[in-house]
Design a protein around this nucleic acid. Structure first.
Lengths: 351, 351
DNA sequence: TGTTAGCACTCTCAACGGTTGAGTGCTAAC
DNA sequence: GTTAGCACTCAACCGTTGAGAGTGCTAACA
């Protein structure tokens, strides 16, 4: 915090007033407005002088001469680090969240998606969530179920009780007995291991020992791999994309569309959120701090979630730089805590 | 078709020209434009007279005096029923579709969603799809897998190889043997039946016979019911919602947002599409033919899909009334045929 | 030395009014 | 029945203008 010295109490108060006002009104805020609305006990001329200083220091800018001031990215940055008030959620909001989180969801992915929906609803911005990152999942059990004579359902259960399944189609005739033998053999080989601990020789061995045609074994093994891949993979979801349109900075349709197109680019959002998972606690990316040029008017706030000190993913919101940071932070905080509790509940005593 | 008598060849040609032009340009089209662009061998004054007639008959309207004409809903209706040309897709479009449909998907829901994505891509409109309606699904097998000592995975396979699973949590200790006994008993009761053929007495009987605590049985049975419900339930998905913004009629942000809000209302879309499933072939809902007031500038084109003469659901597009009907119809037709083929493949010889 | 009132100046925005151009309806001639 | 010609209408464009908000600067005051 090099800047801290730079700004005395009064400048801070004024900067805070400017930002609070601007966030609320979306209009450049002038000296008179501040003198009137916020009780700083100062005349507008004094504030004018201070504002000139703040502008020189780069915390605020003027869209044009004779307009009020708006915060710069640097201003917002200072705000979130030093000035922002995190007012706790309103009682009715808490009730709303609790209600939405009410039904017990046992699946991890469903759970985080639900949390994302709630954040989007409460904040009125677009929320973003990364599904749990379960690297090197340990296989706990593999099951094969006969669906019909042409199809087998492969079910893989991994550590933490995460389940994936996949249908495989084959053209051989296969009876229950040999299938259950295959199931057993697969379990012997795979249980307790991660997918990359399972080597080719093992599979060849398997193929040799079991009297099941290769046309069945190889798609089944592939399906197991697929399932593990799905378990280990993380996706990034956005909720409430159209909330973007609710904010006047995007009332220009061209801009709005540009943003919407951008948000559809999975990988952009993905890298954005993924970087957050290594941080602790809250991570702010304000305006041009996002490398991407089209995002220079957007901010991303994320926090990590997980269980027992282990980060599993990140969750947060995307909105205009002119965002109600305090409110958003408190919402994310509250919901991510609920989420953590739920994850601990279902993930529980498990590795 | 009462109207058919109303319009002679020339009026039809002019109406078609107006619509074709307007769909392409989004501008009211004047008599001179038609006289020039389309070779009808008529002067603009003649066309002017005919247009006056067409207006009186309600096929076209004038946004204001001294502007060109735009088609009315009645005009579009006549167009799709009598005038529209269905030009087959371009070679590259076919290639694109084939490529996108390339990977074999075995899950029904995934498949129709994929088809929806393709339609949205090809047409540039928002596509809508209703997932397969499998009423009174016949249970083909129920499996219970131990995930860990607190959780059981319930897997239900229904007719057509549709699979659903659900995790259930319980607090009892239960061993493999009694679980497999429960599995067997469940199968004896349920296989070959629909969910509403399974009665309370059966379950009580089950509970009495098997030495498995009620704390386990009842959540398991509930989970089975849940799975069946999920199998039988249909959802409606939209793809490419933001495509709406690509059309000038929604360049008014207020209008655009209204539409986007509307499309978020699941039940609106749901009832819209659901009504289509009882039709045969294509169904057009043009502008105010949609009962909902906010949809008076939107058209919905749907067709049914299914396997072997059995309708499973509907798929189509939502776009502005000023839509390239011909192109959309050909795209939907082509893709739904592909979809039908795939469904027949995976659904196959099954009830 | 810090604060403030006053004033001239700047810039946006909305309203106004004239002009342009596309398109119509009507009439009269072919 | 068809068409050329003409007067008329109306939205869109554009430059002008005045109001309003806000600034920077200066001079006076505590």
């Amino acid at each position: 915090m090099v800047w801290e010295k730079e700004l005395n109490e009064r400048k801070r108060a004024i900067l805070k007033s400017i930002i609070d006002d601007y966030v609320q009104s979306a209009q450049p805020v002038g000296s008179r407005t501040i003198a009137r609305k916020h009780e700083l006990g100062l005349g507008s001329a004094t504030i004018r002088n201070e504002m000139a200083d703040l502008e020189e220091l780069g915390y605020i800018t003027q869209p044009h001469t004779s307009a009020g001031r708006i915060p710069s990215d640097k201003g917002y940055r200072f705000y979130v680090e030093n000035l922002m008030q995190i007012h706790s959620l309103a009682q009715e909001e808490i009730a709303k969240i609790k209600k939405a989180m009410d039904d017990r969801i046992e699946e991890l992915d469903q759970l985080v998606k639900r949390a994302s929906v709630i954040i989007s609803n409460i904040t009125g911005y677009t929320s973003v969530v990364m599904t749990p990152l379960l690297t090197r999942a340990i296989i706990k059990s593999v099951q094969l179920l006969v669906v019909d004579d042409k199809r087998i359902l492969v079910v893989v259960v991994a550590g933490g009780g995460v389940v994936q399944n996949k249908l495989v189609k084959h053209d051989s005739v296969i009876n229950e007995v040999s299938l259950s033998r295959l199931t057993q053999a697969l379990n012997v080989i795979m249980v307790g291991k991660t997918i990359d601990q399972i080597t080719m020789p093992m599979m060849i061995e398997l193929q040799r020992e079991i009297q099941v045609p290769a046309e069945v074994i190889s798609p089944v093994v592939e399906a197991v791999e697929d399932c593990v891949r799905k378990i280990e993979s993380t996706d990034v979801y956005l909720e409430g994309i159209t909330n973007i349109l609710n904010h006047p900075e995007f009332s220009d349709l061209l801009k709005a569309r540009e943003i919407l197109e951008l948000l559809k680019e999975e990988d952009v959002i993905s890298t954005l959120v993924r970087s957050a998972v290594h941080k602790q606690k809250f991570d702010f990316k304000i305006g041009s701090e996002n490398q991407i040029n089209q995002m220079k008017d957007l901010s991303v706030i994320t926090t990590v979630y997980g269980s027992e000190g282990k980060n599993l993913g990140a969750i947060g919101v995307i909105g205009p730089t002119r965002m109600a940071y305090g409110k958003v932070v408190s919402a994310i905080q509250y919901i991510s805590e609920l989420l953590n509790r739920e994850i601990t509940r279902i993930f529980g005593d498990d590795s």
